[in-house]
Simulated assay, not measured.
Amino acid sequence: MHELSITQCIVDAACERAAGRTVASVRVQVGRLCAVVPDSMQFCFELITEGTLMQGARLDIDETAASAHCRGCDSDFALADSILLCSCGSADVEVISGRELRILSMEVS
């Protein structure tokens, strides 16, 4: 379960930036192509934050839809999964969104 290590990195980064202050919430952006299960991430977050400055904090996850641009027909299209193939049949595509994994914001007190 790689969600555990990803979530641990998020908690570590948030605690470091909080500089001793209590963290109330963290908002992260997760692209659909990252193979991260949001429910697993939420579960890991609750376990990892126990006994830290983030205990009781809220994890808000914004999922980003996956999209790509086809160089063959010059069109943009949505990706349902990680198969990078345009409806025109071209595999010459560039992923535009869906691979994001970043902390967007956090609320401290």
Rank of each mutant, 00 (worst) to 15 (best):
G20M: 12
G72T: 07
G20H: 12
Q29R: 14
R71I: 03
G56D: 13
D92T: 12
Q29M: 13
C88G: 11
A35Y: 10
R32Q: 12
L84W: 04
L84S: 09
I96D: 11
I83Q: 05
M54L: 15
D39W: 08
E50G: 13
R71D: 13
T52K: 00
M54I: 08
V37Y: 01
A66N: 05
H69V: 08
T22V: 14
D92I: 08
C86N: 05
C70R: 09
L84K: 00
T64Y: 08
T64N: 03
I48G: 01
A91D: 10
T52W: 09
P38C: 06
L33P: 04
G89H: 04
C73T: 09
D60S: 05
D74K: 01
A78S: 10
V95D: 11
T49H: 06
Q29Y: 00
A66Y: 02
V26A: 02
G56Q: 10
G89F: 05
S40L: 06
V28A: 00
E94F: 06
D76E: 15
S82V: 07
T64G: 03
P38N: 05
E63R: 03
G31K: 04
G72M: 10
D74Q: 14
A35L: 14
T22R: 06
S67N: 13
I96C: 02
T49N: 01
V37Q: 03
L59E: 07
A57T: 04
V37D: 04
A24Y: 05
V30Q: 04
G51Y: 03
D76T: 08
I96W: 03
F43K: 03
C86V: 02
S87D: 15
I48T: 03
L33S: 08
C34Q: 13
G31E: 06
Q29H: 12
L84E: 02
H69N: 10
A57N: 03
D81F: 10
Q42A: 06
M54T: 06
L53P: 01
C70I: 06
G56S: 10
A24D: 10
I83N: 09
R32T: 01
C73L: 04
E94C: 00
C86E: 04
S25L: 00
R32V: 01
I48H: 05
